[in-house]
C-alpha cells in the first residue's frame, strides 16, 4: 500500500503520460446534492399526479393510470441514471454542489456503470424510513452508504464500489483562494539547495498562506527557524519570500 497521505487527492496517469488529480467529495456535500435531487423527484411525482388526473379526463381513467405508473417508475429508478449519463455525471443536485460522477479512471460514466451504482443505491439507503415507505417507492437513512464512504479511501458508497465510480468536485475551491502575495515580500533565494519535495513545500506554503491565521503560519514555519535564522513573524516572511522566489524563477 502507498504511504498514508495528508489529502484525498487521487492521482491518475493517463495514456498521454500526464497525471491528473481527482478530488473525491465526502458524504456531506453529497448528502446536500441528494436532498436537492429528492426534492426534484418529489416535484416530478406531483407533476405526474396532475398529468394522471388530466389524462384520465381526456383518455379514460385506465390509460391515465397506466401512463402515470410508467412515468413514476421511470422517475423513481431512472432519474439518477438518465441525468448522470446524459449530463456527464451530473444530476441537478450534483451540479448545484459542483460534483460529478466519474469512473475511477477519470473517464465519464456510462450506462452500465450508472445503472449499477443507482440500483445498488437501494442497498446503500438501508435502513428504510418506515413511515416514508410508499409501496415500492422507498426512502432511507443511507447508513450503509455513509459507512461505506467513511471506510473507503475515495468516499465510495457500495454502489460506487460495484460500478467502479467516484464522485468528485468539478471545480477547484482553491483556485480563487490562491494567494496573490502581499506587497512587502521580496523574493529571496533559499539559503541552501532544496530537494523537489522541499521546494514544493515552500511553494505551496506561499500559495496557501492567506487561508491560515498568523499564529498558525508561525507555528507551521517554526521548524524552519534554525535554517532561516529568524523566528516568529520574520520567519513567516522569509518562508514566503523563498516560496515566491522558487515560483518566479
Amino acid at each position: 500500500m502507498a504511504e498514508p497521505k495528508l489529502d484525498t487527492l487521487q492521482s491518475i496517469e493517463l495514456a498521454e503520460g500526464v497525471q491528473i488529480l481527482l478530488r473525491p467529495a465526502g458524504p456531506l456535500p453529497r448528502a446536500w446534492a441528494l436532498l436537492v435531487d429528492m426534492l426534484l423527484v418529489g416535484v416530478f411525482f406531483i407533476a405526474e399526479l396532475l398529468l394522471m388526473l388530466l389524462l384520465s379526463q381526456v383518455m379514460g381513467i385506465y390509460t391515465g393510470l397506466g401512463t402515470s405508473l410508467l412515468l413514476v417508475f421511470i422517475t423513481y429508478w431512472g432519474y439518477f441514471i438518465l441525468y448522470e449519463v446524459l449530463r456527464n455525471g451530473q444530476t441537478p443536485g450534483k451540479k448545484m454542489m459542483g460534483l460529478r460522477v466519474v469512473r475511477t479512471s477519470g473517464e465519464r460514466v456510462g450506462w452500465g456503470a450508472s445503472f449499477l451504482r443507482n440500483l445498488v443505491r437501494f442497498g446503500d439507503m438501508m435502513p428504510l424510513l418506515p413511515q416514508w415507505q410508499l409501496w415500492v417507492l422507498a426512502v432511507g437513512f443511507y447508513f450503509f452508504g455513509v459507512a461505506s464512504c467513511l471506510v473507503t479511501r475515495r468516499f465510495q458508497r457500495l454502489g460506487d464500489l460495484v460500478a467502479d465510480t467516484v464522485v468528485v468536485y468539478t471545480r477547484e475551491e482553491f483556485l480563487e483562494g490562491v494567494t496573490r502575495l502581499r506587497e512587502g515580500v521580496t523574493p529571496a533565494a533559499p539559503p541552501m539547495v532544496l530537494t523537489r519535495e522541499e521546494q514544493m513545500a515552500f511553494i505551496q506554503f506561499s500559495e496557501r498562506a492567506s487561508s491560515w491565521s498568523d499564529s498558525r503560519k508561525e507555528e507551521m514555519v517554526a521548524p524552519l527557524a534554525p535554517l532561516l535564522g529568524v523566528r516568529g513573524r520574520e520567519c513567516v516572511v522569509r518562508a514566503l519570500a523563498v516560496g515566491m522566489w522558487l515560483r518566479e524563477s
Binding site: 390509460t63 393510470l65 397506466g66 401512463t67 405508473l69 417508475f73 423513481y76 429508478w77
Partner: peptide
C-alpha cells in the same frame, strides 16, 4: 385496462 395493468406490473415487479 390492459395498459394500466401493464404499468402496474412494470412498477411493481421490476421494482
Amino acid at each position: 385496462s390492459s395498459f394500466a395493468m401493464f404499468g402496474f406490473y412494470i412498477i411493481n415487479n421490476v421494482s
